[in-house]
Design a binder for these strands. Structure first.
Lengths: 354, 354
DNA sequence: GCAATCAACTAACGCGCGTAACTTAGATCA
DNA sequence: TGATCTAAGTTACGCGCGTTAGTTGATTGC
């Protein structure tokens, strides 16, 4: 049996010079053909000979050398804390896929390591990560956060084109891409209103964060448009966990305000919705028959496995990642950015809890 | 106010030559100092001058040029389908962290794009991904799977050092790292036995996959060691979903075999445990008072948010990722690999369902 | 007092490639 | 027929760096 381990290409170092020699042309000709320059004129015949040589020798371009010679690179850096957080990992996927389409590579630098470092140390890691990426001569940097918030980026990041994803810098000097929380909140509330609900409880997150602010605004927007007066008694804040949702839901269900208990619950995230499910079931109520529930975030592992499956608003992680790469591409191409902060829609995913 | 945008370093292209000029030495001297070669002798004085020049000029080495000149690279490629699957993403984290410690970069190539491609197309994507990584001249490749199984890797991957993570090749010719399913199954069952349970139901996955085989073997191991005769009536297979777990659990609970219903349930994954919880609650039973439950996989989003929180066996994703990088490091260093298949322990995480 | 040693460097080459500037043989034109 | 132009290439340089093979002046050994 023939030696099947390695085609000719395996012997490291088939270079353009080898291809040139094999095709009987100069190295430059090979370069011209491979980079398909229109300005240079190479006859169809030799072009064909060269491509054939490439094939038989198993030539593989050396991306590093190419970057060195051409003074530009095919790489974007992605610095992020989200590698661990299964939550927002789809940002990576979106960015990765888009980068792949653009024939670019993503160098991912994780800034989260070991548990519970102090902030100062984390900042140091971020700077180190950016430094490393700059050493790789990336063409630009994506900076992605686990949850939508204001961040302070290391200063050196400003040396090259940068796009923030799922976060924004307090000064507002860097282009950023964030979810349209408000639109999502409106959409969810509208859905409940459309189902005939008028007393809609809202279980909110820590009211200081952008997600809470936006989602609540959207809730108000929808009520206002529908001409329903908001009832402050229907709005509570809870810990962003299943337990928090459980407690908050009990509070709302026990409460018999001026017009009785809510007939629907809009939970500002899916984990809280998970807890709310428990509270509702303990109350002997059925979802969605007795009470409707809508979540937020679309954490698949929760939303798709709750019984009944949870109708929820999705955070557009993948889209944000892709848009980030696109934005970075225009930035590095020198095109001016139209909007400094781009918002991406949060679509409603209909399942069976409404 | 001074122009704060850019330190000297920002002007792209502070090279070693610049540093040398600034320090009044040859470029070679700079190179020697920066790569801290012991063989070369540079006086403390000039060494200091050089480092100072590096500092004031903001010199940053060019990783690409370095790789080109030294004929080796700081990169490992990670080709995987798991970018999307929040599930096994910790493999990436483990690998990333370990690579960072080794001062190496991970180039991640996702092979999963758009939904539901046919297998053939997926294979094509994998080959393209590997090809791209080879163009980057990575020093080695990690190939990681979402779930533990046999895979067939693209042939070109054999051109360079490769380590499989969470999977193995059918021929067994590549070093691989997999979870110790059997040990995990044993550990879970032992825990239930230690809690006094003797009738332990086992809800298994599709019995053909390695995870199902191993976990069941572990279950038998523990029973045998404890001198408990296995009851075939206590073992069922279900769909690997919450619904599947729900159905399977009902079946076990309704069944009043020779010795009544099981007092504990070992579910071969957490999603099924989630469904089992529902079935148990519908039966009016309390966890863990009336019946204990143990899961497998430690899907945080489920296990940590179920009420009560689920005791489960963790898949050592992070460890496998880290071990993968370590193994690859020894491979690329030319050291022979001791074991062709390395197994990593699956620890039991105690929560409140036992 | 002179060869041998050594510390402290430097000159020069090449890694694989992009690219501007030049060459050459044939076609075109006045 | 000589000048001009073009197609089809080639020569030569440099990207930033690692590395080998020197070079140079001071010190040592006898």
């Amino acid at each position: 049996m023939a030696n099947r381990t390695t085609p000719a290409s395996a012997q490291r170092g088939v270079t353009m010079a080898d291809v040139a020699r094999h095709a009987g042309v100069s190295r430059t000709a090979v370069s011209f053909v491979l980079s398909s320059r229109e300005t240079a004129s190479i006859s169809e015949d030799t072009k064909h000979r060269i491509l054939e040589a490439v094939q038989t020798l198993g030539y593989r371009p050396n991306a590093g050398a190419r970057a060195l010679a051409s003074q530009r690179s095919d790489w974007y850096g992605l610095v992020t804390e989200i590698v661990t957080a299964p939550f927002a990992v789809n940002i990576i996927k979106g960015a990765q896929d888009q980068a792949w389409l653009d024939k670019r590579f993503l160098l991912i630098a994780s800034t989260e390591q070991g548990g519970g470092r102090p902030d100062s140390e984390h900042a140091g890691m971020e700077e180190a990560a950016v430094e490393k990426l700059l050493e790789q001569r990336v063409a630009g940097i994506l900076y992605a956060a686990t949850w939508h918030r204001a961040v302070s980026v290391p200063e050196i990041i400003r040396e090259i084109p940068t796009v923030l994803i799922n976060c924004f810098d307090a000064e507002g000097t860097l282009p950023s891409i964030v979810p349209d929380e408000r639109g999502g909140g409106r959409r969810a509330t509208e859905r409940l209103l459309a189902a005939g609900h008028r007393r809609i409880g809202f279980i909110n997150l820590d009211p200081d964060i952008p997600a809470a602010v936006g989602r609540l605004e959207g809730y108000y927007d929808a009520l206002a448009t529908a001409g329903v007066a908001p009832d402050p008694g229907l709005i509570v804040s809870g810990h962003a966990t299943a337990d928090g949702g459980y407690t908050a839901a009990r509070e709302l269900l026990d409460r018999s305000g001026k017009a009785g208990r809510p007939t629907a619950l809009f939970c500002a995230n899916d984990r809280m919705a998970m807890g709310a499910y428990d509270a509702i079931k303990e109350h002997g109520l059925a979802i969605p028959h007795d009470i409707a529930v809508i979540g937020f975030d679309n954490q698949e592992l929760i939303a798709a496995y709750l019984r009944p499956k949870l109708t929820t608003v999705a955070l557009p992680f993948e889209e944000m990642g892709a848009l980030g790469v696109q934005t970075l591409a225009s930035l590095t191409a020198g095109q001016p950015i139209t909007a400094h902060q781009q918002m991406v829609d949060c679509p409603l995913l209909e399942r069976f809890s409404v």
